[in-house]
């Protein structure tokens, strides 16, 4: 009984409960026929939201006003340039990843330079930056759909012992992010800055350095996600990142990370990402139209935040 009580106090538990409920509802409707297929699809698509969600979580933890709106544009640019660089050549897969990461680093540096040097609020700084990055992507892409190298395309679409490879990648990166947040001094610094930037500065924490690294980290994760997503979907498209703007914010918040910063939660992002995908597929199985599906998604997001917000009065 005590375990149940302490579990129900964990902010991330609700996203898992919700995801599981939706999963069961979908399976029951199809009579269990789609169990494996549905679970694999959910893990695959959730993996992409998890990758961008972790990056966004690091940024949101920095405190009120910190948010990265540049995520979709970074994904598009990294996917486009990396695929163009690899030119369907299997031997260039790793250099391609390096190119994607380099783009992430460059965008992250640009973002923080705007925030720091021009003292622009992060929302507007990353928004302006995303316009520029998106333009660069349009310019490099030229409407062509470049195919990913054979081996990379196979890797991203196949499974290992029943688990999609992209989900494994997301798992490894999530564990790394968890260690980074909970066990390293850097993780403590982020949380401290999110709780009170003044106190953090007085305690001698290198505030600017930490924020800088965090923005770069978020862009790198977005770039890696773009690289994998472009390979998974058989080529980079200019609008491939667009749905991940709201998604990255939604999974962070539904997952139980405090919007006001200072408190983050890696596990919750998994629950929230699975949940967001499963809701859409559940409504699809029930045969709901696009309009109904959107309305239901919105109602569920609000319902989850009302329930989770009530459990955790300190959250805002």
């Amino acid at each position: 009984m005590n375990i149940l009580v302490s579990l129900s106090r964990k902010p991330w538990i609700w996203s898992f409960v919700a995801a599981f409920a939706v999963w069961v509802a979908t399976i029951l409707f199809t009579g269990g026929a789609s169990t494996i297929g549905l679970s694999q699809a959910a893990l695959t698509f959730a993996a992409f939201s998890i990758l961008v969600g972790i990056g966004q979580m690091f940024v949101i933890t920095l405190g009120p006003g910190n948010i990265d709106l540049c995520v979709p544009a970074t994904m598009t640019l990294a996917g486009t340039v990396a695929l163009k660089f690899m030119q369907v050549d299997n031997s260039l897969i790793l250099p391609g990843l390096v190119v994607a990461i380099a783009i992430g680093v460059a965008v992250g540096i640009g973002n923080y330079a705007l925030i720091k040097l021009l003292q622009i609020p992060p929302i507007i700084a990353t928004l302006s930056m995303s316009f520029i990055v998106q333009s660069t992507a349009i310019w490099t892409n030229r409407g062509l759909r470049i195919k990913p190298p054979e081996a990379l395309a196979t890797f991203t679409t196949e499974t290992t012992i029943g688990i999609p490879n992209v989900a494994l990648v997301a798992l490894v990166l999530s564990v790394l992010a968890f260690i980074l947040l909970q066990k390293t001094v850097y993780g403590r610094w982020i949380a401290a800055i999110g709780q009170s930037i003044r106190a953090a500065r007085m305690a001698g924490i290198p505030v600017d350095g930490t924020r800088f690294v965090t923005y770069v980290l978020c862009s790198i994760l977005a770039a890696v996600c773009g690289y994998l997503l472009a390979s998974f979907s058989g080529g980079a498209a200019l609008n491939m990142g667009s749905e991940y703007l709201l998604m990255s914010i939604a999974v962070v918040v539904i997952g139980g990370t405090a919007v006001a910063g200072g408190n983050s939660n890696v596990a919750g992002i998994w629950g929230a990402s699975l949940f967001m995908f499963l809701v859409v597929s559940m409504l699809n199985t029930y045969g709901a139209g696009a309009g109904i599906r959107l309305i239901m998604t919105g109602l569920i997001i609000i319902a989850v935040i009302v329930v989770a917000g009530g459990r955790n009065p300190n959250q805002r």
Partner: peptide
């Protein structure tokens, strides 16, 4: 009343308005 983050609530609302518009 619930001390909710407005960003998330309006994010959810954006799906609802979008869905209604499509309907």
């Amino acid at each position: 009343m619930r001390n909710l983050p407005s960003i998330v609530v309006t994010l959810g609302m954006s799906f609802i308005w979008g869905g209604l518009a499509v309907l």
